[in-house]
Design a protein around this nucleic acid. Sequence first.
DNA 1: GATTTATTGATACTTGATATCAATTATGAT
DNA 2: ATCATAATTGATATCAAGTATCAATAAATC
Lengths: 148, 148
Amino acid sequence: MTSGTSNTIEIDLFTALEDKGLRKTSARSAVLTRIESANDAFTAEQLCRDLPEVGRATVYRTIRHLVDAGALCKLPILDGAPMYSIARIEHHHHTICSKCGAIGEFRHSTVERVMRSLGKEIDGEIVGHRMEIFIICKRCLSGTNDGG
Amino acid sequence: MTSGTSNTIEIDLFTALEDKGLRKTSARSAVLTRIESANDAFTAEQLCRDLPEVGRATVYRTIRHLVDAGALCKLPILDGAPMYSIARIEHHHHTICSKCGAIGEFRHSTVERVMRSLGKEIDGEIVGHRMEIFIICKRCLSGTNDGG
DNA sequence: GATTTATTGATACTTGATATCAATTATGAT
DNA sequence: ATCATAATTGATATCAAGTATCAATAAATC
């Protein structure tokens, strides 16, 4: 089952669970492998659909563990279920296409600098931030994005 | 019923519905008046609780109309129901207390400047953005925030 | 291999939100 | 003001996302 080849991200995910003292089970392996293979952000329900052999509760639990461990980031979606993406080491932000909902990533050092200067203005202790850029993506702009 | 005094925001909300060709009913008036009196962001369920005389469906429908009309902005909350705040003319962002969930507002011109410079990096047309700062608010830091 | 303990997953439930539709109410015409 | 018409309401049912329960099962340790 895990006789696979790629071992860069998978180890991260497994390690994340190990570090929490969680057992390595086949159900969890299935979920992690599925997540690993994801190129884009995904919803919990998508995983459930793709992994009918794994119980819904387990899918949700595993996702929660990973978010908890910081291995996944949970992206709130305005109308609909949250999406998840693998947390890279570098802090980053997301672009969301207002037409098709496609999620992309970007990094921008100025954003981080702004955060630091905001500390003075804001009442309370800053523990994190999130920035989302709403766009119309290239595919939607060009009209190539029909049904997929 | 609308023999009130304040007419700055209320009119905006009513106008928003009028402009959509919607009738002025007492149920809607109750919802708008309640929203108008809100100093902070609120959830749909909060309105329902505060307005037991108005049906849940109507509360939700009215909120949807207002968001639709651009009079309210809908704020996705990571774990929980979205919150709504009256859309001011000025663009602003939100602080969210990670402990108690309290939502505040802030404005920062640098954020807007960053947005402009991001335009070059991002594939697609930017149509909007949202920034959220996660904080531990003063009340939670000081321990004053017990149960309220 | 037996024991202990975490994990699983079918099911029931919770919550936020929407669809249905008969009863009601606002608006426009008379 | 009254009537007719069409929008609105709200009790209820339903839906969707997600969580709690708990007996059965599978990992890890000995």
